[in-house]
Design a protein around this nucleic acid. Structure first.
Length: 223
DNA sequence: GCGACAG
DNA sequence: ATCTTGTCGC
């Protein structure tokens, strides 16, 4: 059974934190920020649910039609966290199972909407960058809490403010619902920040989190 | 040296 | 991530 999504073998599995850091520095050099898909008709949501023992997990991917937010495809796989949770190395914990789930899809989504950050990361290589580079698919990160500094955006839906790290703009705090805490959007791979924010607003017409994330979260909990 | 630090 | 009550609103 061959996958429609090919996962590139760009690195060995790290044994230590310093090996993981080296891998991120190399993956970072492969991130493309100068491209944008001509047309984004479908978007994938990715999320992981942890079970007892905290290293048993279920990774879920859902693919939604952006115009209608209806479900086009989905996949869920059980797995095991292969790395401890270390801030900054989060991707090594969740990416393996998420990549397996992506390989079970029957359609190739136009963009991956990841539950975590992309360039808004100490080494500018968060989960969304890992998944984007390893699949070579466009990707963005949508985090629920900030990494970096920001001022709260204005109250109306659609308002945003820059998120900075080391004086550099790495993402945006985006208000998806008026009067509700913002989400934190950053680039993963082959996408622009302006378009990422437009996409997240399209995907979040009613709730704070995009429907991609919500549907993947629901699927992971039921699988 | 200490705090902060996605999920 | 997860542990947790009641409450408000559709």
């Amino acid at each position: 059974m061959t996958s429609v999504i090919e996962v590139r073998e760009l690195h060995d599995w790290p044994t230590t934190e310093s090996e993981a850091v080296s891998i991120q520095e190399r993956l970072r050099s492969l991130v493309r920020t100068d491209e944008q898909p001509a047309e984004v008709r479908t978007a994938a949501g990715l999320d992981v649910d942890y079970r007892e023992s905290s290293d048993e997990l279920v990774a879920a991917v859902t693919v939604l039609d952006v115009a209608t937010l209806s479900l086009v495809d989905s996949a869920a796989v059980r797995g095991r966290a292969e790395f401890p949770y270390v801030p900054g190395l989060f991707a090594f914990r969740e990416a393996p199972a998420l990549l397996k789930a992506l390989q079970e899809l029957r359609v190739v989504p136009d963009v991956l909407v990841c539950d975590g950050h992309g360039l808004a990361h100490p080494r500018r290589c968060g989960l969304a960058c890992h998944l984007g580079v390893l699949t070579d698919l466009p990707s963005i990160g949508v985090g629920k809490t900030a990494m970096g500094h920001y001022e709260p955006p204005a109250e109306p839906r659609g308002s945003w403010s820059p998120v900075t790290m080391d004086g550099e703009e790495v993402g945006r705090a985006l208000r998806t619902q008026t009067g509700v805490k913002p989400v934190f959007v950053s680039i993963g791979h082959r996408y622009t920040l302006d378009d990422a924010c437009d996409l997240v607003l399209d995907l979040a017409p009613k709730y704070r989190l995009p429907e991609t994330t919500r549907s993947a979260d629901h699927l992971s909990r039921r699988s």
